[in-house]
Amino acid sequence: MLPLPVFDHHRPRTLSAALDLLARLGDKAVVLAGGTDVLPNMKHGLVEPDHVVSIAGIDELRGISLDREGDDDKLVLGAGARLAEIESSILVRRVAPALAEAAGQVGGPHHRAMGTLGGNICLDTRCRYYNQTYFWRKSLGFCLKKDGTVCHVVRGGSRCVAAASNDTAPALIALDADLHLLGPRGARIVAAHDFYVADGIKNTVLEPGELVVRVSITRRPGRRSSFEKLRRRNAIDFPLLSIAVRLDVSGVETPRVDAADVVVSALGARPRRVRAASNVRPGTPFDVAARELAEGAYAECKPLPNVDDDTEWRREMVPALVERAVTRLEG
């Protein structure tokens, strides 16, 4: 087996107890929810905490509901909601279909039953030179994300380009979701788009001791969304490419696209919002929108050989997936 390092285990019953504990332990502690990302990384010697704080049992973090705030309906998901719950939730499929589709394509059925929304949001970035055993990485000479000073993807590069590989991130960004964080410096709300930064070593703005507590998505009339994932197998694999599309549609007989948002991920550390989507003119027919968005995405997305070396093919797949995601929304 792959032994875990030695650490102390903590299982706080309530959110406040967890936050106090994390504040006290600082960066010597690691948060454990589903364990499907942290534990493999610990077994690879990528994370060597002195303390593990298990928050899977905190009920306050569970739950999926539709709350009314002012005149908006807000879909609220607890960070502890299991991905399998999100995948099969009627509410999520109605209000944020892209999120339900994304959650439904994470890893395999067991990963979705154990993994949480918060855990997926905070998924460590991935790279085939990083997610390997200690022996393998030592033979490689390590990489600048862990234990080393050299990047093997970009020769002579000084910035880590490990890829954001969490399927829910592009969906949350495209749906303008808000992430509710709670930490030693109190509560704050960060838009999903601003939550991620272009640094492969740590690609979120989360501070030590801070937790993602809830996610809220405002329901917009006429809003449709979809998610496409590129992988070689139909289960277990991480994405080679993932694309979330959000369209604001009007017109009943001949639906027209008035606004769009396309987010492409698994390229670099930060999911990329395609600029072309922002200048879609209101009233664009679906086929025109599909072509424009596909070409725009193709022009802006240049995959790196970080998760795979079929970069040419992955780039070819960007327009194909965008087109499929958009046409599916014509409905």
Binding site: L39, P40, S54, M114
Partner: peptide
């Protein structure tokens, strides 16, 4: 059984409180 010890193969699946779970990615204390 243990097939990969990091959640890639499913050989270690057990049922915890009714949920099919990868026992190699679950701490005993949890």
């Amino acid at each position: 059984k243990q097939g990969c010890d990091k959640g890639d193969c499913g050989a270690c699946t057990v049922v915890v409180d009714g949920v099919a779970t990868l026992s190699c990615l679950t701490l005993a204390l949890d």
